[in-house]
Every structure is written in structure tokens, then in C-alpha cells.
Simulated assay, not measured.
Amino acid sequence: MKKLLYSFLILSSATLFAQQNSSVKFAVANNIIGTVGMFNLRKDIVQSSKAYTTANLPASLKKYSSVFTNGVTEYKIKTGYEGLDRVSLANLNGQNDIPADNPVFIEGYEFTDTNTMIYGDILGKTEVKDHNGKKTLFISASR
């Protein structure tokens, strides 16, 4: 009975550990990941936006289809405002003494391609945790 209880506790903690935050809506601008909330705060730099569901992602966004399970909004930035802070996930891993090719979790969504660029504005809280026996970076967009 104890083994069953321990197994249940381990499984529950693993499920909670990597739970996806469905309230965060991802956005993309110039092939760089951000959030809709981030762009809503910077409306003055946005030229246009278009929302996509997972079913109608354009070819340029298909590589993110496993992450954008709730769809995504693509933003066009006004000319001259493209210089927002950005960083690659591999670089973030390096800053946290994690191998560059280890996946990174953002709001519970796993990004396996560490060449992916993200806007610095979505770095609310970062934590290094053990995931499947490897040091892994977990990012929360909320501060």
C-alpha cells in the first residue's frame, strides 16, 4: 500500500512540476518569442497583428506547433523599433551553467530548439530545476 501511495505522490508532483500555464498567450515578432501581454504594453511599436489557431499556422510558425497548442499571435513591429532586447535559449542556459542544448521550459511549455530567440521582456522569473535527471531552466513570464 505504501508503494502505491508513494508512486501516486511522485506521479502527481511530476505532473504539477511541468504544468503548462494556459493563461499565457504566446506571440511572435520577427521570429522571436514573446507574449501577447508584452506587446499589449508596447502598443506604440506594433504595426499590425494577426492571431492564428494551431490548425492554420503559416509555414514560418509550424516549427513551434508543439508549443503553440492554444494558437499564437504574430506581430509586425514598426520600422525602427525592432531593437527590443532578445536572447537565445542556449545563451540563457549558459548563463545558468546548464549545457546549451538542454531544453528550456517557458510557462510549462518545452522548447527543445535552444537556438530559439525570446524577448527579454518575458523573463519574469527563472529557476534551475532537475528534470529527468538534467539541470533544466524554467522561465515564468510573470514577475
Score class of each variant (00 low, 15 high):
Lys43Cys: 03
Gln20Arg: 12
Arg143Phe: 11
Tyr119Lys: 05
Ser142Asn: 14
Glu82Asp: 14
Val36Asp: 15
Lys78Tyr: 08
Asn21Pro: 02
Ile118Ser: 08
Met117Asp: 13
Asp130Lys: 06
Gln19Glu: 14
Val72Arg: 02
Ser66Phe: 02
Asp44Gln: 14
Phe105His: 11
Tyr6Val: 03
Ile122Arg: 08
Met38His: 11
Thr69Phe: 04
Ile122Gln: 11
Lys43Gly: 12
Ile33Ala: 08
Ser13Cys: 08
Tyr6Cys: 02
Gly80Lys: 10
Thr35Gly: 08
Leu137Gly: 04
Asp130Gln: 10
Gly124Val: 07
Lys125Gly: 00
Met117Leu: 15
Arg86Trp: 07
Arg86Gln: 10
Glu127Ile: 02
Ala141Ser: 15
Ala18Leu: 13
Val24Asp: 10
Ser7Pro: 00
Val28Leu: 09
Lys25Gly: 05
Glu127Asn: 13
Tyr81Gly: 00
Leu4Val: 01
Met117Pro: 05
Phe111Glu: 13
Ser65Trp: 02
Ala14Pro: 02
Ala59Leu: 10
Thr136Glu: 14
Leu16Pro: 01
Ser49Asp: 13
Phe8Ala: 05
Gly71Arg: 00
Ile33His: 09
Arg143Val: 04
Lys62His: 05
Val128Leu: 11
Asn132Phe: 06
Lys125Glu: 15
Ala55Cys: 00
Asn96Tyr: 08
Tyr75Ile: 00
Leu57Val: 00
Lys62Trp: 03
Ile33Phe: 07
Phe17Asp: 13
Ser23Asn: 08
Ile106Leu: 11
Glu127Tyr: 06
Thr54Val: 06
Ser48Leu: 12
Ser48Trp: 10
Ser23Cys: 03
Asn93Met: 07
Phe17Gln: 14
Asn93Val: 00
Thr116Asn: 09
Phe111Asp: 08
Ala141Gln: 10
Val67Ile: 15
Thr126Tyr: 04
Glu107Val: 01
Ile32Pro: 07
Ala55Gly: 02
Arg143Ile: 04
Thr112Trp: 04
Glu127Phe: 05
Asn30Cys: 03
Leu5Thr: 03
Gly83Gln: 12
Gly37Leu: 10
Asp97Ile: 00
Leu9Phe: 15
Lys129Thr: 04
Ala29Met: 07
Val72Ile: 09
Asn91Ala: 13
Leu89Lys: 10
Ser12His: 09
Ser7Met: 06
Lys134Ser: 12
Ser49His: 10
Arg86Gly: 02
Leu4Trp: 12
Val104Ile: 06
Arg42Leu: 14
Phe111Leu: 13
Thr114Phe: 07
Phe105Gly: 05
Ser48Tyr: 09
Lys125Phe: 05
Leu16Val: 00
Asn30Pro: 02
Ile10Tyr: 08
Ile139Cys: 08
Arg86Ile: 03
Val72Ser: 01
Met1Phe: 10
Ser140Glu: 15
Thr73Val: 14
Ser22Arg: 06
Ile122Glu: 11
Asn102Gly: 01
Phe111Lys: 05
Arg86Ala: 06
Lys25Asp: 12
Met117Ile: 13
Tyr119Trp: 14
Asn21Ala: 05
Leu41Asn: 15
Gln47Thr: 01
Gly94His: 10
Met38Pro: 01
Thr53Pro: 00
Leu11Cys: 05
Pro103Gly: 07
Thr53Asp: 13
Thr15Gly: 08
